[in-house]
Simulated scan of single mutants.
Amino acid sequence: MSASSPSLLLAARDAAAHQHYPQGALYMVATPIGNMADVSLRALQVLSLVDTVACEDTRHTASLLQAYGLHKPLLALHEHNEVEAAQTVVARLREGQRVAYVSDAGTPGVSDPGARLAAVVTAAALRCVPIPGASSITALLSVAGEAGWDGRFVFAGFLSPKAVERKQQVLQMGADARACVVLEAPHRIEALANELATLGERRLTVGRELTKQFEEVAQIEAGTFPEWLAGESHRTRGEFVLLVHPKAADATQVGAIGASALRTLALLMGELPLKTAVRLSAEITGEPRNALYQAALARREQNGAEEVD
């Protein structure tokens, strides 16, 4: 990466320099979550412009910047000193400096330090500018593949490290029909797998070490998660992002849909694509979208449709 850094920074300047980068602003810069090639040209342009880079780990960030041919003054700002260090950032912003904040990987403030910093800067009536980038969450969602799912999900982040609280959180997750995204570190993944196994047949997409050389994505039933982990010795290593799929509508849910809602669904299916008809039917009638989708599939099958869009 470093051998091509000059040309990379020139490309960043050519692509992103036209945008205005105000002074006295904090730039929340997302960095790669594993693959160094995932850095954005806009992130490189911002990092080349700022006066200071505040960061979760100065040694890690120094190596990151060096890989792209950048050298900047660093300010340590992590979970243990975030409130105090945020005041230093505010003082520098008031002097007209541009300050970037980066966590060790991914987007600051999303299950990483940075949220309190952004709150302090905003409370001081100073500007906070997001610079988006690679995300394990959206990366996993893009390959999860769930027919009929409208894409809505709950982001739970890291569950509690305390066994009793974590068990309660998983119970709540199991009772919720919505999809849920969970993050976990390698030293707690086995404990989490045992808790998620209580969800039985609920579908689970596991992302391990996403964007890195040995990334792995698997779709399994939650009940088999502990066995899947134990199947290969390397599987307990690395960072995890997990999608608990939305709960499938059962026959009782489909049967409970009112006749009026079914008529609405049938009328809309006659004029619109299936997914659009289901979405509008749910909005009009208030019936569960998953149940309406199952009813729509059943109606199509009954009418002899050969494929579902």
Rank of each mutant, 00 (worst) to 15 (best):
173 M>Q: 04
191 A>P: 05
218 A>K: 11
226 P>F: 08
160 S>L: 01
179 A>R: 02
134 A>P: 06
189 I>D: 04
226 P>R: 07
226 P>S: 11
191 A>Y: 00
169 Q>C: 02
184 E>H: 04
143 V>H: 05
223 G>L: 14
190 E>A: 15
178 R>S: 12
221 E>Q: 15
192 L>Y: 01
181 V>R: 04
145 G>H: 05
148 G>L: 05
246 P>M: 15
223 G>W: 09
201 E>T: 14
176 D>V: 08
179 A>P: 04
134 A>R: 00
227 E>F: 02
231 G>H: 09
199 L>A: 04
185 A>W: 12
166 R>N: 12
141 L>V: 06
188 R>L: 06
243 L>Q: 08
231 G>W: 02
232 E>H: 07
132 P>F: 15
187 H>N: 10
214 F>G: 00
237 R>K: 12
209 E>W: 12
216 E>L: 12
181 V>Y: 07
152 R>S: 10
157 G>I: 11
200 G>P: 01
141 L>T: 01
220 I>N: 11
215 E>T: 05
160 S>Y: 00
153 F>S: 09
143 V>A: 06
232 E>D: 13
190 E>F: 00
247 K>F: 02
221 E>V: 14
250 D>P: 00
146 E>C: 09
210 L>Q: 03
233 S>Y: 01
175 A>K: 07
197 A>V: 03
131 I>P: 00
239 E>S: 08
172 Q>G: 14
154 V>K: 08
150 D>L: 01
152 R>K: 08
243 L>P: 00
191 A>R: 06
156 A>G: 04
224 T>E: 07
218 A>H: 05
196 L>S: 14
222 A>L: 05
181 V>N: 06
224 T>S: 13
226 P>W: 03
163 A>G: 00
193 A>Y: 10
243 L>W: 02
157 G>K: 07
174 G>N: 11
172 Q>L: 13
211 T>C: 11
131 I>N: 01
140 L>E: 03
180 C>I: 11
154 V>P: 00
181 V>I: 15
152 R>C: 08
226 P>L: 07
161 P>V: 07
176 D>Y: 02
160 S>T: 07
207 G>T: 10
239 E>G: 07
209 E>H: 06
195 E>G: 04
165 E>S: 14
193 A>Q: 08
186 P>G: 02
173 M>Y: 03
168 Q>K: 08
238 G>C: 06
154 V>Q: 13
233 S>N: 02
221 E>G: 13
147 A>D: 13
168 Q>D: 08
236 T>Y: 00
147 A>S: 13
136 S>C: 13
243 L>N: 06
144 A>F: 01
202 R>L: 11
193 A>H: 06
131 I>D: 04
180 C>R: 12
238 G>T: 06
197 A>C: 09
191 A>N: 09
219 Q>T: 15
198 T>F: 05
204 L>Q: 03
174 G>I: 08
226 P>T: 10
183 L>Y: 15
195 E>A: 13
208 R>D: 13
155 F>L: 10
163 A>D: 10
191 A>I: 00
217 V>E: 09
208 R>S: 11
242 L>S: 06
190 E>Y: 00
143 V>I: 12
210 L>F: 08
241 V>P: 07
204 L>Y: 04
218 A>V: 14
236 T>L: 09
195 E>Q: 14
242 L>M: 14
181 V>K: 07
222 A>E: 01
247 K>N: 01
200 G>Q: 14
227 E>S: 11
